[in-house]
Write a protein that binds this DNA or RNA. Sequence first.
DNA 1: ATCATATTGTTACTATTTTCACAATAACCA
DNA 2: TGGTTATTGTGAAAATAGTAACAATATGAT
Lengths: 208, 208
Amino acid sequence: MITNKNCIIRLSRYKNALYRLQALGFVKVFSDNLADSVGSTASQVRKDFSLFGISGNKKGGYQIDILLEKLNSILGKDQLQKVIVIGAGHIGSALMRYRGFEKEGIKILGGFDIDPAKINRNSVVPILPLEEVKAFIKAQGIKIAILAVPDIAAQQAVEMITGAGIKGVLNFAPLRLKDVEGCIINNVNLEIELENLIYFVNVEAKIK
Amino acid sequence: MITNKNCIIRLSRYKNALYRLQALGFVKVFSDNLADSVGSTASQVRKDFSLFGISGNKKGGYQIDILLEKLNSILGKDQLQKVIVIGAGHIGSALMRYRGFEKEGIKILGGFDIDPAKINRNSVVPILPLEEVKAFIKAQGIKIAILAVPDIAAQQAVEMITGAGIKGVLNFAPLRLKDVEGCIINNVNLEIELENLIYFVNVEAKIK
DNA sequence: ATCATATTGTTACTATTTTCACAATAACCA
DNA sequence: TGGTTATTGTGAAAATAGTAACAATATGAT
Ligand SMILES: NC(=O)c1ccc[n+]([C@@H]2O[C@H](COP(=O)([O-])OP(=O)(O)OC[C@H]3O[C@@H](n4cnc5c(N)ncnc54)[C@H](O)[C@@H]3O)[C@@H](O)[C@H]2O)c1
Ligand SMILES: NC(=O)c1ccc[n+]([C@@H]2O[C@H](COP(=O)([O-])OP(=O)(O)OC[C@H]3O[C@@H](n4cnc5c(N)ncnc54)[C@H](O)[C@@H]3O)[C@@H](O)[C@H]2O)c1
């Protein structure tokens, strides 16, 4: 079982590139085409596929539609992925208004907030009171949540939603949440992303 | 010169943890304390420090204030980091309204948009017309930009701002931008982040 | 039908990253 | 003061990730 995060990210990139190639009318693809479109190497592409038992045709490359089917299945794109957002503030609202997730088969079913002023049951993605989140998760069988609450509220929120059945959290609050048994917590820490970028820009500047 | 991105991310985490420890009244810290607070190992902490020539005291651990000074210097936190945002839509606005960057010494000086309706020279972070971006970058000596424009606009936007002196871009558009000589492009691809999380949640579910 | 060629799939190799282990030594204690 | 102990700093080992090489083979050309 593959636990290499970068490898899975590459699979997403291959998938995206394949849709583009398909839209351009291509029916098959070679490992080096695909490598070019995602900025990788042909070896890496074949190695990645090999890890998942994906095979093509000697001299014939890979048939795009079959490849897409396999990648989509690995990535869970053969079923609609239901997601909720906790915290309907700046980031939470931006995510809920974003149309890009739907064409990726990711549907945000609702947002939840403690601030009564944020509640709106009639918006495209309804914003509901936090008290309803547990029932909602259970009723809809939701596994994935995006956490966009202030950092002081994050730990408690995670415990609440994992208690109700959430198995994966994408956390935007800039702190390390305590591991929860049976739940994967991934972080999007934009402060750290920027700090990282700044470091590498400075390093480059020093070389010259 | 260290090019290991994860290592630099860990430095950011150490730094953040050290501020928390300092706020709690601690003056010195041991590698295993620090490891605990960031979810790493004592060996990893000492190795990371060793790579940057940071040393502590045998049996005495590390003095937090000195350590912070060194980490801050490595991470470029000893000077204000000026940033601009291209695209004042949902994500761009959320970022510009976010107060969290300032306490990290990161200041968003302005946003730029092609849509005249978005322009607002009087908001806390002024939103200016895109035509002014080149002059602004040069006048203010800006090196870092956050790109929050629709994907079709992203490539052209990058070329424009790198031409004016931008050396690092944090790109939110879900596509691979062509490398630009002398500029580092890091991506925050939230579709892929979610896809990744979904994969690992599914894998966990299958194990059981 | 045969041959030359292009491309895969996998194994072997290399590089990078993390972990381990322990000598060196500063701090503390009796 | 001398001995004991806790902790660092680092080089060696292990684990992980990525690259290269090439045998196997399907395809298309003649
Ligand atoms: N906005 C950004 O650009 C940005 C950038 C980096 C990190 N972040 C992080 O993302 C998180 C959200 O940021 P934001 O700017 O959207 O903040 P925000 O204040 O705009 O929104 C937070 C929302 O969460 C709600 N909330 C508070 N406690 C809650 C709880 N227990 N349960 C449910 N909802 C709750 C609030 O009512 C508010 O609507 C924060 O942790 C912030 O540090 C934001
Ligand atoms: N909103 C999200 O939650 C979200 C999630 C994932 C990815 N993204 C990506 O982030 C980017 C921005 O998303 P958004 O939701 O903020 O979009 P948005 O449409 O709300 O905002 C985009 C803004 O960019 C401006 N713009 C267009 N072309 C421009 C140009 N050439 N120069 C300057 N400004 C220009 C538009 O006028 C608009 O104000 C997109 O690439 C999107 O795919 C957004």
